[in-house]
């Protein structure tokens, strides 16, 4: 547990007036409020800090106590004194109905704050109860191979097991909303939602763009020149391909329907694009070298 400089958080000096504090708090709240910074945990953290600073400095009594004991909070006697005062204050506050902190999750206050001021005090501008439960965010890491098929998975979110179905073809970075699996509602309000972000790692040799797959296939010079049959890997098996005579390096072919499953379109697949890479041999046998020499002679005579 560390001492928190609430003045620094609000960018103020110790001599700031109550109206300066209010102004600074308002300005920072507008900047970091979670409603204007969706899915930004840094802003949310900052907002909590700003809120806490305002809870302390925005209240004349709290500020006085903080100024007096704050920096020396390790002194047991002082803390004891502070606690006694706080208990008094708690009693006064209890009749007003408290700040719930439910909008943006519990544990809004730092250990430092809790030790000095006890639990949550009321005051500030957010003083009423909320209706809907808190939304939860979770990240699920999967391999590309796993999202080739639809699968069921059990997630543990805040100690609760939730069975979800992950449709085949889900995208990296995609967010899905699971209604009603967030925090409990307040005053009988609806539950919050669970937002799951998928982080998909690709350990395969295929590159993926939505439902299309891309892969490079090496072919030797002879096959490229004369054509021939080769076997290539697709995502779920091998297929035989006929290479056309005179195939150039970097030429592409499309294997229709051999790509990745289309998201939420059962039985539909994207395409697989194969790029041929012609490999020029570097270690030739004597015989091969002779044949290439012979080829060269023919070419020379043609010109």
């Amino acid at each position: 547990m560390a001492y928190i400089d609430y003045y620094k958080i609000l960018g103020l000096s110790k001599s700031a007036s109550q109206s300066d504090i209010k102004k600074a708090y308002r300005k920072m709240a507008r900047k970091y409020h979670p409603d204007v910074n969706p899915n930004d945990s840094t802003a949310e953290q900052k907002f909590k800090e700003v809120n806490e600073a305002h809870e302390v400095l925005g209240n004349v009594e709290n500020r006085k106590k903080y100024d007096e004991y704050g920096a020396d909070w390790k002194h047991a006697d002082d803390i004891k004194k502070a606690r006694q005062q706080q208990q008094e204050q708690q009693r006064q506050y209890s009749s007003q109905g408290g700040f719930t902190g439910a909008d943006f999750g519990g544990g809004d206050f730092s250990d430092f704050f809790e030790s000095m001021f006890g639990g949550r005090t009321s005051g500030g501008s957010r003083s009423s109860t909320t209706f809907k439960g808190q939304d939860y965010n979770a990240e699920v890491q999967l391999d590309l191979k796993e999202v080739y098929t639809t699968q069921k998975q059990t997630l543990t979110v805040n100690g609760k097991n939730i069975r979800i179905t992950i449709p085949a073809g889900v995208e990296n970075g995609q967010v899905i909303k699971i209604k009603g699996h967030g925090g409990a509602g307040i005053n009988g309000g609806p539950k919050g939602d669970l937002y799951i972000t998928f982080a998909i790692k690709n350990s395969t040799r295929f590159r993926r763009v939505k439902s299309d797959l891309y892969s490079d296939v090496s072919i030797d010079v002879v096959t490229a020149v004369l054509g021939g049959d080769i076997t290539v890997s697709t995502f779920d098996g091998k297929v035989k391909l006929s290479v056309k005579p005179g195939t150039q390096t970097d030429s592409k072919i499309k294997l229709k329907g051999k790509g990745f499953p289309k998201y939420k379109k059962e039985g539909q697949f994207g395409d697989l694009y194969i790029t041929y890479k012609v490999k020029v041999p570097t270690q030739l046998s004597e015989k091969e070298k002779e044949l290439f020499e012979a080829l060269k002679n023919i070419k020379d005579h043609e010109h």
Partner: peptide, 20 residues
């Protein structure tokens, strides 16, 4: 409608917390 409640709550919070 129940689906619109979170949206209106968000608007209320912006109004109440941020004076917008």
């Amino acid at each position: 409608h129940i689906d619109e409640v979170p949206t209106v709550e968000k608007m209320i919070r912006m109004h109440r917390d941020l004076n917008i």
